[in-house]
């Protein structure tokens, strides 16, 4: 997009021990990680649910999947969810992933399970403190 800045000194590998913070594109151009982008684009931002025309409702599936991905591992385990292991979304091995039908089934199952859990716990799924 715009210019490169010398402030991007992040390699993508786990940080070696160092004496200061790592700036990920603090400066004019971001070099954001995929996780950061997905977390924000799919889980934050204003939700506008107008029910006219093509506003999508069926996107719940996607939302649920993303919510689980941004949930903590502990929380997900409490919920009995461990399907992300080997999931193409998070492992990037699209070719080795399960086929779509299987994935759909798993998401469907998950959705039901989540609905049951949410019914019990009234919505305390993955967001701890949305506002501070």
């Amino acid at each position: 997009m715009s210019d490169n800045t010398p402030e991007q000194y992040r390699s993508g590998s786990p940080p070696a021990r160092r004496d200061g913070p790592t700036f990920v594109g603090t400066g004019r151009k971001g070099q954001e990680t995929l996780a950061d982008i997905l977390e924000r684009v799919l889980d934050k931002g204003i939700v506008i649910v107008g029910d006219i025309q093509v506003r999508l409702l069926d996107i719940e599936l996607l939302t649920i999947k993303i919510r689980l991905m941004v949930a903590s591992v502990e929380r997900a385990k409490e919920m009995g969810i461990n399907w992300w292991e080997g999931d193409p979304f998070v492992s990037h091995q699209v070719d080795d992933g399960p086929d779509r039908a299987e994935l759909q089934n798993r998401v469907g199952e998950l959705e039901q399970r989540l609905a049951r859990i949410e019914g019990r716990e009234t919505g305390e799924v993955s967001r701890t403190e949305r506002r501070a």
Partner: peptide, 28 residues
């Protein structure tokens, strides 16, 4: 970041981002 490193913590800061996280009250 320097202080945290002494406590065995790596701090990473990213941005500036569009304010994705600060629109929650406005859901329509």
């Amino acid at each position: 970041g320097a202080d945290l490193a002494a406590d065995g913590v790596a701090l990473e800061v990213s941005g500036p981002w569009p304010p994705y996280n600060f629109v929650a009250e406005a859901d329509i």
